[in-house]
Design a protein around this nucleic acid. Sequence first.
DNA 1: CACTAATCGAGACGGTACGTCGGGTCTTATG
DNA 2: CATAAGACCCGACGTACCGTCTCGATTAGTG
Lengths: 192, 192, 192, 192
Amino acid sequence: MFEQSSHPRSLRAKDSVLCATKELLDEGGLGAATVDAISARSGVSKATIYKHWPCRTAIAAEAFGRRMADSIPLPNEGNVIDDLTEQVRRVSRFYSGPNGKVFAQLLAASVTDEAAAPYFREFFLDTRRANVAELWERALRRGEVNPAISAGTATDLLFGPLIFRLLTGHAPLTEHEADAITTAALHGLLEP
Amino acid sequence: MFEQSSHPRSLRAKDSVLCATKELLDEGGLGAATVDAISARSGVSKATIYKHWPCRTAIAAEAFGRRMADSIPLPNEGNVIDDLTEQVRRVSRFYSGPNGKVFAQLLAASVTDEAAAPYFREFFLDTRRANVAELWERALRRGEVNPAISAGTATDLLFGPLIFRLLTGHAPLTEHEADAITTAALHGLLEP
Amino acid sequence: MFEQSSHPRSLRAKDSVLCATKELLDEGGLGAATVDAISARSGVSKATIYKHWPCRTAIAAEAFGRRMADSIPLPNEGNVIDDLTEQVRRVSRFYSGPNGKVFAQLLAASVTDEAAAPYFREFFLDTRRANVAELWERALRRGEVNPAISAGTATDLLFGPLIFRLLTGHAPLTEHEADAITTAALHGLLEP
Amino acid sequence: MFEQSSHPRSLRAKDSVLCATKELLDEGGLGAATVDAISARSGVSKATIYKHWPCRTAIAAEAFGRRMADSIPLPNEGNVIDDLTEQVRRVSRFYSGPNGKVFAQLLAASVTDEAAAPYFREFFLDTRRANVAELWERALRRGEVNPAISAGTATDLLFGPLIFRLLTGHAPLTEHEADAITTAALHGLLEP
DNA sequence: CACTAATCGAGACGGTACGTCGGGTCTTATG
DNA sequence: CATAAGACCCGACGTACCGTCTCGATTAGTG
């Protein structure tokens, strides 16, 4: 995506950069993933780096995102309640772990860094949203969920609260909290 | 909060700074609210500014937050459905307006800028959350909502999705979307 | 000199300031003798300090100078050669000791700090030059020195080289070097 | 000296900086040669400037020193008395002119600014001292001066007094005074 | 197998903002 | 009424990182 010079040299360079960036992110968060640092560690010059990405944040988004998709496999318990409960738990666990911090920084940076937003969207949101959409479709087919609600709305309702808490830290991201959110989202706020 | 030396000079300086910052935020977003710019426009020296706030973001948070509380008055329609629907609409409208951009930048900056987080929390979250909590209490007393759900969870469920969309821009913040979120949150995702 | 408010409080304040300054100079050179530091240690407010001295350097000059006069007593060996040799040695020793550093900083600061120059002159130069002038008069009366040369010229010839070396550090200030200078100055550069 | 990356860009930047600094020194002394001012006038960024020099004073020393060497040509009258007399006069004239002030500020700054001292030494002292040393050698070969006296001592004896007066302003730097110093230094202080 | 273009590494550079420091002035409340 | 306390303005400091740039060396795939 975004470019495809299939020169072997380009490929090697891109790989080195993403690899080095990932390391730096792991070691010191987004703040440590300076372009100079990335260049130094990867052995790829800044000029070359900027030939492949529009800005620092984009590199970080790609580097970090590549391996995140796999790290949260989609559950398939057979019924929507268990599926969604488990998925929200997994994401919540991811957010409260060491990677959550970096994820938050990345999301925050994408707000400022216009050019990085598409990268962030591609490597984080799209995959994740597609996953949940699939899960949602399954549930729809089984007649378990309200067909008036779109997969998008459902996704935001379930994961928006997690993101919100991750960013501001105004409430914890424990499993218990995750379950409370899922339950409330599934059954609604109103008195039964 | 944080300090109040009640010295008239301090007060004048703080006021000038907050005022100037608000103007700059309105004119050019968080990017324009440089400490140098704030200092220049307010006539308060940088040294003095840094005696009152730990960092640039904190100033912006306070300046922007002071007047936001008023800008979203709490509705009181007599029943929880209308109240929450209206409140989510108002917040959504605020987010999609010119201030939404600045709010997002501020929230994003607070992630990076550790020292600014408490300022952001105080001037944005606490007030807002207290408001919704009040609304929630009212509904609880009227037996309209599920008492097993805390005000905090309810708040996050309703506004988390808005924040999520504001930050990533992956979905619009129209009134229609706001209503879809509110409805889903109120009645739940499951098939009735 | 320079002011004479004989209020007892003024006197106490001046003394405290000079004392504190001397300590700070001894501890960390001129760099440590910040006005704030002086104020803090002496318990005299900055406003009061600036009522007594025109600038930081002036305080330091007075504080440091007060006790220097005594620290280099005038020799009286009975003949000019021994007298001058000994005096140059003493001054040279002073310069190469811990106080020499501070003296150099003070002299340097007086160049920039116009207001401090008279203080420096009074507390350092005048006394010293008067001393040497006295020594020179004695020698003149004994017919030991060239009456065509003024005391001022003689002083500069003997001590200028020391100052020069102290400031630039281009040559050492050992006793041997001091003697070499004195000898050359006394007998002249030309082939006998 | 100190580094010469021979990159053409480096050279251009260094040149611009030195040039701009010289102008600023001429216009307003060392006080006007702010790093910001230098950066603004030269079009070279502060970061780049600090990559070439350790501190402000070092830049000024180099800028000012580069052209000073030429401004005081070495006399060659054929005999040491005339040579030295003339040289002392020239230096004295230089010191009492507009450049003298800047020179004094520079020398003073080098005392405080440890990092600048080598620059000052290189661009001012070394050349000058080498010049006088050459003159001294010539005189030695002609048997005109006392071979027991080193060139260094002679230099300090002749120019130390000038520096001393330049810094403290305790005595004028007229030609008459210059001659008095030279005469005294050449023939010695003692009664013939 | 050399040749010619693209591509690269290295890193200098301009720019912009940062947060800090110290000097000297001014205000307020105290004794 | 002078003082202690300390807030304040000013102006400069040296640093950090961004994204652009120039350079000479390295490399591909053509003739």
